[in-house]
Design a protein around this nucleic acid. Structure first.
Lengths: 203, 203
DNA sequence: TGCTGGAGACGCAATGTTGCAGAAAGTGTT
DNA sequence: AACACTTTCTGCAACATTGCGTCTCCAGCA
């Protein structure tokens, strides 16, 4: 990796230019009022080239999602056998909040919340988190990934994650996140305990 | 309403023609391989006119969603004070399954599952169900709609709904749906009971 | 150095979507 | 029946997206 090569460097440079230009324009005139042509002009590339870097205008806003998702997946995948998927999720979230607190949160959340197409994109992202989490939770519980329990536990966890995000403006300390996740855990364990002993209905 | 009027009738006729033509074409060549122009030609309208009836190609596949959603919302909104939101949801789902059993299920599920843009649309639809349910659950619990509990309960319920849908091919009897929903209820009550007494973390 | 293969940047055309404006058609009135 | 109003239907143009083909340029190799 000592030799990223001219090509690699240029590619990264172009990508950064696109992100920077796009974000600036989005902030100035809003997401919908910014055209691909505008972004391309600001980043000094041809409009067609934009799509070589991002599959859609929305994707620029989530430019760091792949990285985040890979981090998330790896954390769950590589957790030690005695750590539950939920525990891994909790630890991951706390780190995330800590990092956000350090860097100061970006204005993206507002942009997303006010743009339908970005909301849709965001839902798709959450669905991906949900899928991974469901699989891991299923392992923990020793049931199939499409079993009711696994789906409910994962869905509730993801919902908690979203819930925290919406309250981020008000209170986003790692301590708070930890408290919330503990509450979620309590809820999930209570639910699972109630189910234990009851014959599964099959789903 | 005795006088739908020529206009109303024509409009309904055109809408039906679009749905029928589109569904046929989707079944024949697939969703992506069918163009708006194809649908317009088959329904004998101008391409531009299509968008006066549906906001997108995807929307045709979900042409009965608004009706379904309104039915769902009304059921929850107009439930008697002693019926919980969850109970209303359960009753609604059981009816839905009964109706599906009567009519025989359409091949739409397959189409949706194999087309990303339709999946996204479907997620958006589910998000709308989730929103309504969250509000009503919050009322039941006497908490804010953005509270952690309400969000978790609603999310788990919706997840159960989706879970049932994916198992529909195998087993979709109303009895089965009822059993599943009972299991969900058990889970939710267990979870809420575990939370009761614990100080809310604020979210 | 000069050649060759592959990657990246673009141009073009087709399709989906939408705002705008004018034409066409249904409705209610006189 | 003729008129004024409102709703629909369409064409047009702009913008988002994508497949295909071309051209340029970096990288590895003889």
């Amino acid at each position: 990796m000592q030799h990223p090569g001219l090509r690699e460097r240029k590619k990264q440079q172009t990508r950064d230019a696109i992100v920077r230009s796009a974000m600036e324009l989005f902030a100035e005139r809003g997401f919908d009022a910014t055209t691909i042509a505008d972004i391309a002009a600001a980043a000094d590339i041809a409009p067609r080239t934009f799509f070589g870097y991002f599959p859609s205008k929305e994707a620029v806003v989530f430019h760091d999602f792949d990285e985040l998702f890979e981090d998330f997946s790896a954390r769950l995948r590589d957790r030690s056998p005695d750590e539950t998927a939920f525990a891994a999720l909790r630890a991951w979230i706390v780190e995330l909040i800590s990092a956000a607190e350090r860097d100061g949160d970006d204005p993206r959340d507002c942009l997303i919340a006010t743009t339908p197409s970005l909301e849709a994109h965001d839902r798709a992202n959450m669905a991906r988190f949900n899928e991974v989490l469901t699989t891991c939770v299923a392992e923990d519980l020793g049931v199939a990934p499409d079993s009711l329990r696994a789906q409910m536990v994962a869905a509730a966890s993801i919902a908690a994650m979203e819930s925290m995000r919406s309250l981020k403006e008000r209170d986003s300390t790692p301590e708070h996140a930890l408290a919330v996740m503990d509450e979620v855990l309590l809820f999930l364990e209570g639910g699972l305990a109630a189910l234990r002993g009851a014959a599964p209905a099959g789903a």
